[in-house]
Design a protein around this nucleic acid. Structure first.
Lengths: 241, 241
DNA sequence: TCTTGTCTTGCGGGAACCCGCAAATTTTGC
DNA sequence: GCAAAATTTGCGGGTTCCCGCAAGACAAGA
């Protein structure tokens, strides 16, 4: 049995190495990669079917890497080990996990014990192991309360990238008014409308404010933006305008 | 000699502890705190004059903590040890270091050797030790090329928080048109104007796009936004409107 | 003092945004 | 298959944003 570790912080990498050694005596080789890109290459070459990886990495982030790994071998078992339970990350992971794949999501702040349990659970027992805190975010992000639908989330990203309503309409093949409708839903859900009587009426630019709130609440984060920007650029290229 | 370590990742904390022990034999006590808030309390109680801290922490981030520590004892020597050299962090630190204080800024990716040198340099020799990469960002952020002036940066934050032009004008005690002028400078510097002939003219909402670009280039980041939001709220409170 | 440069302010207009209203269309549930 | 519910679309308007133009305000320097 082979395990591939993808993590850019050397300290955390060696800690993971230890944990894998301790939790999985049946594992004979442990491979390491120090960023998402190297990780993809390693996974391809070594045919490792067990991967534990960080989400936030400089060269290429974990979500990207996981996606290509899963695209090539959808039965790979991946344990995500992240510092954050930002909604944007959780949503990002949920978005790419293929049908029936087994994976896990634990926070770096969990105990050694829980990490080892997760390693065995995901790699040996083929269970999906997801930390409580993360699960909480997941619920919230799907629940109706102030969770955004996929459609709303996508529009949020487009807006955050700085596209105009017209541009979004074109991209999403919708009418201008539909885009604006979705925007209004977004404003509603993100609770952007100011309570009356708190200063002059026009304090906020709703469009900007919605993005600010999303960033503050971690519904959106920098890496989600980067992903969006990349998609935008490639889409723009394909248009052959 | 006492040294206080403020860092929320336990692995990094113990690594720092080791490094301090090894680099500073003259140090007799090493204290630890696991977030910015606890760090401030520890600093006050222990009267430690030597602090090494992380910048990105959950409970209270390093910049906040450093500011209150320096406010109470401006001669404290602080070594910042961070994962990132985001312009927003570098600018944030530069913004709070008091006149004549000695401090350092090294990245977590530097070698053990350099970290130890920095520890001795800052704590023993009272030098300012700043990593090359960070220095690069510092230059850039001050240089005219695409560095923002303080005025522009502040407006950028206000816009990113979602304030309208009018609200900003009021806040900054400027006329509406002046605010818009500064915005135009911002658009210019962030290079938001699209090259003609690349799709329809009106692809971008300049206001949003400027913020998106700033985020992508790390001129702005989530923690800068949070800081801005907090200031905004307190200012709003004081207005007694 | 007069010039030169930078910064601020006012005016005006075109474009984009925000949104209520209502008809057309699609989706959902039985 | 049909009615209810949810989405999409068009129209119209009020508001804000973006910015060219030009007139004051202020500082530095010949």
């Amino acid at each position: 049995m082979k395990v591939l570790i993808i993590e850019d912080d050397p300290l955390h990498r060696s800690y993971l190495h230890e944990a894998v050694r301790a939790a999985l005596p049946e594992c004979d080789t442990v491979l390491e990669a120090e960023n998402g890109h190297a990780g993809e290459v390693q996974a391809r070459q070594s045919r490792a079917e067990h991967v534990v990886m960080d989400l936030q990495m400089s060269e290429r982030n974990g979500i990207e890497a996981a996606r290509t790994i899963w695209r090539e071998r959808p039965d790979t078992k991946i344990l995500f080990w992240s510092n954050y339970s930002d909604e944007a990350y959780v949503r990002g992971v949920a978005r790419i996990v293929p049908e029936g794949a087994t994976y896990g999501y634990v926070l770096k702040s969990t105990s050694d014990e829980r990490l080892k349990l997760a390693l065995r659970g995901v790699f040996i027992e083929s269970q999906c192991v997801i930390d409580r805190e993360v699960r909480g975010v997941q619920q919230k992000s799907l629940g109706t309360a102030h969770g955004l639908s996929d459609a709303e989330y996508e529009i949020l990203v487009d807006v955050a990238l700085g596209l105009t309503d017209k541009a979004i309409a074109q991209r999403k093949k919708l009418s201008l008014r539909s885009v604006q409708n979705r925007l209004q839903q977004l404003y509603e859900k993100l609770d952007v409308y100011e309570e009356p009587g708190n200063g002059p009426e026009g304090w906020y630019n709703l469009r900007m404010r919605a993005v600010a709130v999303a960033l503050l609440r971690k519904v959106l984060n920098a890496s989600a933006l980067e992903r969006g920007e990349r998609e935008l650029r490639s889409a723009r290229g394909n248009e052959a305008h």
